[in-house]
Simulated scan of single mutants.
Amino acid sequence: MFRFKLHRSQTGWIAAAMVLALSLPAYGAGKTGNSSGLTKFTVAMVSSIDTEPYFYALSQGYYKKVGLDVTLTQSDSGPALVTGVLNGTYDAASAAAFPILIAIGKGLPLKFYPGVALVAPNHGNSGLVVKPDSPIKGFADVAGKTIATNALTSLTTLALKIGIKQAGADPNSVKIVALPFKSSVQAVAQGQADAAVVISPFETIAENNGLNVIADPIGEMMPKGAPYNIIFTTTKNSAAKKKEFAAFHKATAKAVTALAANEKLQRELAHSKFDLAPEVAKTVPLPDWSTNQIDLKAFQKYADYVAEFGYTDKSVDVSKVVVNP
C-alpha cells in the first residue's frame, strides 16, 4: 500500500538546481536486473493528485507485467529531483514542464517524456483567488495589485503575467509575494494580498472557506493540450534505456485509462492516498488525463512563452528534447 502527503508543486527552484546539479558527476542511472528477472527502474516525484496513475499502476502490478521493478520515490524539492536524475540516483522524475524547460534552456542535458496530465481549463490547473467583495473581476484588474503565489519564478506567475498582458495591462506592475500555496490563500483571506494564484487542491480549499475563484490562469492562458506534468531524464539515460521508458509509459497508460473511466476511484485515492480532506476530495477538479504523445505544437508555444517572459534567453526547440514513445 502507498500513502503520501499531498504537495502538488509548481516550483521556482532552477537557480538552486543548477548550482547543485552542475557540481555533480553524471553516472548511469539505476542498476538493472534482480533475482525476479525484472529490471529495476526508479522514478522520483513530488506526490500529488496528478501523479495518481503512477501509484495506481504500482499498486495494481502493471509495471511488473511489463518487466519492470519500479520504485516510486517521494521528493519535496525540485533541486533534489534534478540532482537525483543527473547523478543517477533516479532513472527519471515527474515534474511540471516549466522548470525543466528553464533547466534545458540553461544547458542541462535533459529529455522530456509524456506525463499523465494536460493543461486544460476546469481541470484544476490553477485558480485566481479573491475575496467575495474584491474589485478584481478579471486579469486586467490585477495590474498594480499584490498577488501571492508560491514563487517568483513559477508556472503560476508566468500564466498570470500572460493573462494580464493579453488583457491589455502591464504584467510588470504586479507585486508578486512568494508564499506557500496554503499561506497564499490565507494572505487573501486576511487582507495581506489582493489575490492569489494557487493550484489544486488549494483553489477548492479556498472556495470551501468562502473565497472566490474567478479564473484559471494556467488552464486558460497556457496552450491547451500542452503537458501539465512530464517525465524527464538525462539525454544519456534516454538513449540507454529506451525499452524501459517504453515499458514504463505503456504500464502507466493502462493506469491512466482505468482512472479516467472511474471518477469515484480517483476521488477515493485523492482522500485515502494523498491526504485530501473528504470534503475537498469530493469536489476538487480532476486532472485532464492523457495517454497521448506530447503535442509538439502546443508544447512549443509553451516554451515560447517561457522565453518571451525572460525565463530563458531563447526559446527551447522542444522537438529536439521530446521523446514520444
Rank of each mutant, 00 (worst) to 15 (best):
P99V: 01
I147Q: 03
G163A: 11
T89S: 12
A215S: 10
M1D: 13
A193Y: 02
G115C: 05
L24K: 15
A117Q: 03
A246K: 11
E52S: 12
M18L: 15
L276P: 09
K31S: 12
D317G: 09
F202K: 08
N87L: 07
V185Y: 02
L152P: 06
A93V: 08
I205C: 05
I14Q: 14
A193G: 04
G310C: 03
D50C: 09
A187M: 01
A226E: 02
L296A: 14
L24R: 15
N229M: 01
A195S: 13
A258E: 09
P99Q: 10
I176E: 00
S47K: 10
V116L: 01
A169M: 11
K242W: 02
A167W: 02
F299M: 12
F112S: 11
A16L: 12
L276Q: 07
I100H: 07
T11L: 11
S94K: 15
K182A: 15
I294T: 09
I162M: 07
S94I: 14
N172G: 13
V284K: 07
A239T: 11
N209S: 09
G107I: 03
P180I: 03
A239V: 07
D69L: 02
K273Y: 07
L108T: 04
G163V: 10
Y62L: 10
A260H: 09
L152G: 13
P287Q: 13
F98Y: 12
V198M: 09
L20P: 00
K111L: 03
R8H: 15
L110T: 06
V306Y: 06
A240P: 14
H7T: 06
K5Q: 15
A95P: 00
L81H: 09
L38I: 07
R3F: 06
D295Y: 01
V318F: 05
P53Y: 08
L20W: 15
E279Y: 10
A80Q: 14
K40W: 00
L276M: 07
G12I: 13
V198P: 05
S48W: 06
L265H: 00
D91G: 04
D194V: 06
V306A: 08
G127H: 02
Q190F: 13
S75H: 11
N122Y: 03
V119L: 07
A57S: 01
G124D: 04
A96M: 10
L81M: 13
L22S: 09
M1Y: 12
S35I: 06
A96R: 15
G219V: 10
E263M: 09
A281C: 14
G88I: 02
K243T: 15
T32D: 09
A29V: 06
I176L: 12
A120R: 14
V256Q: 08
I49L: 15
S9P: 01
W13V: 04
K314N: 13
G168K: 09
V188I: 04
T283H: 09
T235H: 01
L6C: 12
K106N: 15
V188F: 07
K264L: 04
T283M: 02
P132K: 08
A29S: 14
T89V: 05
D313M: 02
A187I: 01
D317R: 12
T11D: 05
T89L: 10
N292R: 08
L179S: 11
D216T: 07
G210V: 10
I104F: 05
L269P: 01
A196G: 04
L108Y: 04
D76T: 04
A189T: 07
Y54D: 01
P285L: 06
T11M: 12
L128P: 06
D295T: 02
A148K: 05
V174R: 00
V198A: 01
